[in-house]
Design a binder for these strands. Structure first.
Length: 413
DNA sequence: TCTGGGGTCCTAGGACCC
DNA sequence: TCTGGGGTCCTAGGACCC
């Protein structure tokens, strides 16, 4: 069995793009974002600056930190271009995010040489054609290839010889494994397990007791590099959602009703565009102390109408507030739709003549809404998102992340 | 003026059916 | 009639990833 799986990962992607576009930023600690750090350059990471960190905290850690506004269109363009380089070698590419993908080169080594050579060519081309550093890991399994690319960073290549997989793996810390975050790392440390080798030696029943049946089984398999996963080139999204941090707002209808309408508009429009209505609606309400609560309902029929989604979300939020009568302040609202179905575009939520029951959204009211949504979708197709809709005044001021950044994170439905 | 926004998967309890 | 078991779906919460 050869090491045919590549994992390619652009280094500090957004920050590298900024340094590419503005040479004055090269070699300097920079952060993309403002209120919150969306990405940090390696120079900034050296000071402990991390993605997701509040801007103020980042400035404390790194006094010379330079904040730059995001060139989101360029991120999309350059991320796509980098993945396209992989596509030139093999059709078996699984894109994980804007800046990261797996490729299986088993079928093309006769054309392009051994996997390590292909990886070297990919790195050279991305550097020459796009001006960006990219790290690549090469191994026999996805999990190992992913770890190898992390080890290779920044701007490196690591090939794991199939004869020496466990030697490579077992000295590494457990948190390099896919699926081991802060909580699991601490739990493992509690039983004296810090490296992947120590994890491999831990009996299965012990891991299962500590982490649950699925995680125990999975981690043991990964620690011995028994990772049977194949590349999935055509993954469909299983849910779609939108959220908005509100700062601190009173838990009142005049706040959450318009905010939910705005979120429902974002989500439902995406569902309609892709003809993927969904049956389960989930809302999340975060309180002032950052604890959050969810409520969900699963409908008999899938929905994608903006007003319908907004109404259901509103009912669920009211349920949350009834269950938490002492919470007077909310700091975030979220709507997600799951159990997505695939329906022919013209069949969406046409009136079915059923009673006006919340679980049966195909009502007479539904017909008018369907028409209204279609009208709004059409206007936006021609004149852009801002031309019409439910732009929320309530969200206007506190919107901390540009819409363009949200769109980068959206998965293809 | 105390931390973003998009996702995936797992768990556990309860309802319900066979 | 009572008891039990298995499977599936729903709901709420949580860990994790980019």
């Amino acid at each position: 069995m050869e090491a045919n799986i590549l994992h390619a990962d652009l280094d500090a992607f957004y920050a590298s793009v900024e340094q590419l576009l503005d040479p004055a930023l090269r070699g300097k600690p920079i952060a993309v974002g403002g209120g919150v750090v969306l990405a940090a350059s390696y120079e900034a990471k050296a000071f402990g600056v991390r993605g997701g960190m509040p801007g103020r905290r980042a400035r404390e850690l790194c006094p010379g930190l330079i904040f730059v506004g995001g060139h989101f269109k360029d991120y999309q363009r350059l991320g796509d271009a980098a993945i396209k380089v992989l596509d030139d070698f093999t059709p078996v590419v699984e894109r994980i995010s804007i800046d990261e993908a797996f490729a299986d080169v088993a079928g093309c080594t006769h054309l392009f040489g051994p996997p390590a050579e292909i990886a070297t060519t990919i790195r050279r081309r991305v550097r020459a054609e796009l001006g960006l550093p990219i790290s690549v890991g090469v191994a026999r399994t996805k999990h190992l290839a992913k770890i190898a690319s992390q080890v290779a960073k920044p701007d490196g290549l690591v090939v794991v010889d199939p004869r020496h997989e466990l030697e490579f793996l077992h000295d590494l810390p457990v948190e390099l494994m896919w699926g081991v975050g802060p909580v699991t790392r601490e739990r493992l440390a509690g039983i004296g397990v810090n490296t992947i080798g120590e994890l491999a030696k831990t009996p299965g029943w012990s891991l299962e007791r500590l982490l649950g049946p699925a995680a125990g089984e999975k981690l043991n398999a990964l620690a011995w590099n028994r990772d049977p996963r194949k590349l999935e080139t055509q993954r469909r999204a299983r849910s779609a959602g939108a959220q908005s941090a509100l700062g601190r707002k009173p838990a009142e209808a005049k706040i959450f009703v318009p905010a939910l309408l705005h979120l429902a508009d974002r989500v439902a429009t995406r569902l309609r565009t892709k003809s993927r209505p969904g049956r389960t609606v989930t809302v999340r309400v975060r309180f002032a102390d950052l604890r959050s609560v969810t409520r969900s309902i699963t409908l008999d029929q899938p929905i994608s109408a903006t007003a319908m989604l907004a109404e259901i979300a509103e009912a669920l939020v009211r349920k949350v507030l009834v269950d938490h009568p002492h919470e007077k302040t909310i700091s975030l609202l979220a709507i997600a739709v799951s159990h997505l179905e695939k329906q022919p575009a013209l069949q969406l939520e046409l009136p079915l003549g059923l009673a006006d029951d919340r679980r049966r959204p195909g009502t007479r009211k539904g017909a008018a809404r369907w028409t209204a949504d279609r009208a709004i979708d059409k206007i936006r197709d021609r004149f852009g998102w801002e031309a019409v809709g439910y732009a929320s005044v309530a969200l206007g001021q506190s919107r901390s992340v540009p819409d363009a950044f949200r769109e980068l994170a959206e998965k293809e439905l």
